[in-house]
Amino acid sequence: MAKKTALVTGILGQDGPYLARLLLDKGYKVYGLIRRYSNPNFGNTDYLGVTNDVEFVTGDMTDEKSLMTIFKLITPDEVYNLAAQSFVGVSWEQPKTTTEINSLGVLYLLNAMRSFAPNARLFQASTGDLFGNNNINGIQNEDVPFKPRSPYAVSKLYAYWMTVNFRESYGMFCCNGLLFNHESPIRGQEFVTRKISSGAVKIKLGLADELILGNIDGRRDWGFAGDYVEAMWLMLQHERPDDYVIATGEIHSIREFLDTAFRRLGINDWGRYVRFDSKFSRPTEVYTLWGNSEKANKTLGWYPKARFEAIVHMMVDADLERLSA
């Protein structure tokens, strides 16, 4: 039997390497879409040990012709679109770029898939940020109305509905995963969780004497990227396409993240080291993101394994190993 083939966009980010490892372990031939860098950074795929097992193809989410060429050559069985400008803070500074990648890029991908791989199955990485501050009894599930509060979330809303539209218009197997916050040791340095884990380690090792943050009162439902890629795969193995919230059902504040990270390093009073700067505040805030993944639990049999404290410890330990070296 021929191997299944999968095309993973955004493979050099956080989720891509975890997904590639999962697919390779299941016997897939994995293609990874990378932009036309002169010197691409394979640090994350190296960290997960998958760089040499993935076949990389160059393309651009904002260039429909390049995506058409890739789909014509590969005709994958499964497509995982993880490519995005995913840092919320930057989306106010670069709304046009964010929209071109996150919105139009998805349209171009869907068009290429419809033209050359109409029987392929698509996972579209959506986000819990679509809900904004809307909730039902504090919880956000598939029934909660969307109310995006950033250019990033608005761009993802377009992609969400375009994915649904192609599914309903053309009978294509397209799924949205409304992924709530998920972290790992290869989370980007610009995200607050990694900023905390690496910052705490730098203070512990005497490489820094302070950590500068913005709002620390926000509360999030934090999961582990390695668990969330399993949900992506399960969505595409189900008998029919649908959209799912992927979350842990647990909520913690950024203050709790700080406390857990610093205590891991034997520092009990992080307040001595953390300074606040309003430049890191956002024009609009999402105060609480708390997901209910009961639908994914019942339909896909998916449940998160790693919990909050273990995730924080994992990130701190990895940064301690890196920075000690």
Rank of each mutant, 00 (worst) to 15 (best):
G177P: 10
H182Y: 14
R194D: 06
L122T: 07
I139F: 00
I196W: 05
N135R: 00
F131Q: 05
L178H: 13
M162C: 07
M162I: 14
N133I: 03
R194S: 13
N176G: 06
L179Y: 13
T163H: 00
Q189I: 01
R149D: 14
D143G: 06
L122R: 10
F173W: 03
I196N: 03
L178S: 10
N165P: 00
Q189H: 00
R167Q: 10
G138H: 05
P185Q: 07
F173H: 05
P185M: 04
A153F: 04
N176R: 03
E142P: 05
S150F: 08
Q189R: 03
E190V: 14
P145G: 01
E190P: 00
G132A: 08
I139L: 01
G177E: 04
S155H: 06
E190M: 06
Q189W: 00
S155I: 00
A120M: 09
S150G: 11
V154W: 05
I196T: 05
E142Q: 03
P148H: 09
Q124A: 08
R149F: 13
H182S: 15
F131V: 01
L157E: 10
A120Q: 09
S155N: 02
R167A: 11
V192A: 05
L179E: 02
Q189S: 00
P151A: 07
K195S: 09
H182D: 12
I139T: 11
R121W: 03
P151F: 03
C174D: 04
Y170A: 11
C174Y: 01
N134G: 11
L179T: 10
G132H: 07
F191M: 13
C175R: 04
D143C: 04
Y170M: 09
N135Q: 05
G138K: 09
P185T: 04
P145T: 02
E183K: 01
D129R: 08
N137H: 14
L130W: 12
